[in-house]
Simulated assay, not measured.
Amino acid sequence: MGRTLLEAVLADRTLELGCAFDMPGTSAVGSQAGGITIGADPAAAAKCDVLIDFTRPEGTLANLKHARAMVIGTTGFSGDQKKAVAEAAKRMPIVMAANFAVGVNAAYQLAETAARILGDDYDVEIIEAHHRHKIDAPSGTALKLGEVVAGALKRKLGEVARHGRSGETGERPAKEIGFHALRGGDIVGEHTVVFAGSGERVEITVRSQSRTTYAAGALRAA
């Protein structure tokens, strides 16, 4: 994702690449991007107007100490880590989203509308698929879809979420929201919300064909 963001910034005539850095020890450190050497020191963010961060939670938290404003696309935060981001947002502008693709954000609204219309008579399952290198599951986008649906149905996601099933699970609880993660190949990102009722099934699916959709949304936020 980092390389895609760099290419998008360099191609945008309204933006200027001020610095670029990655986690220490990664292959990108020391390479060139737009005449700038990619470093490993997050303090470089202090000289930039906005830092676009698609890293890992621990990297994002380190970057919060140096940035002047941030666009955060990192996922996999714990509850305490999210609180740290919220605290930082009191002293600088932060735009944070599980997914910056326009189509995905449209899917959030569609899922919310469907949940309100269909109600408790339909079972909800969320299926997501990503490339083999993704390190968190379920994806931040899948969790956000779950939060949106749970909110529309007046449920607390932490109380009704079910992550996968195995063995003799018994009958499915009526208000459960299931999550299922697939990992393989070079899948950019696919998310489906299934509303399964008696005699019919409604599915809302969004498939990302390229990471450039995420980059374009992040640049708009910046």
Rank of each mutant, 00 (worst) to 15 (best):
129 A>H: 02
114 A>W: 08
146 G>E: 01
36 I>H: 13
47 K>H: 14
126 I>T: 01
79 G>F: 07
12 D>H: 08
32 Q>N: 13
139 S>I: 06
99 N>G: 05
210 S>M: 06
204 I>A: 11
163 H>K: 14
86 A>D: 14
168 E>R: 09
186 D>K: 12
205 T>P: 04
34 G>V: 13
8 A>T: 09
142 A>T: 01
157 L>N: 05
145 L>H: 12
146 G>D: 01
218 A>W: 02
32 Q>A: 06
49 D>G: 11
133 H>P: 00
153 L>W: 03
142 A>P: 02
178 G>Y: 05
124 V>I: 15
166 S>N: 09
45 A>K: 02
53 D>P: 00
106 A>N: 08
221 A>E: 07
191 H>K: 06
123 D>G: 07
165 R>A: 07
72 I>A: 02
73 G>D: 01
118 L>A: 00
146 G>C: 00
186 D>Y: 05
62 A>M: 10
66 H>Q: 10
3 R>Q: 09
25 G>C: 10
101 A>S: 15
134 K>H: 11
102 V>N: 11
204 I>T: 13
56 R>D: 07
187 I>F: 03
97 A>M: 12
180 H>T: 01
18 G>M: 13
25 G>Q: 08
124 V>C: 06
120 D>L: 00
61 L>P: 06
107 A>N: 06
16 E>F: 08
21 F>W: 15
93 P>N: 10
71 V>K: 06
143 L>S: 05
77 F>Q: 04
63 N>I: 02
76 G>M: 04
205 T>V: 08
23 M>I: 15
7 E>F: 00
64 L>R: 09
172 R>V: 06
204 I>F: 11
37 T>E: 15
36 I>A: 11
99 N>Y: 08
162 R>Q: 14
176 E>R: 11
59 G>V: 02
147 E>P: 02
214 Y>L: 15
30 G>C: 07
105 N>E: 15
206 V>F: 12
128 E>F: 04
37 T>I: 14
5 L>K: 00
104 V>E: 09
76 G>K: 00
171 E>D: 12
216 A>L: 10
5 L>M: 15
110 L>F: 15
4 T>P: 03
119 G>N: 06
38 I>Q: 09
123 D>L: 14
71 V>E: 05
38 I>K: 11
93 P>V: 13
127 I>S: 02
48 C>G: 10
165 R>D: 08
3 R>Y: 09
202 V>M: 14
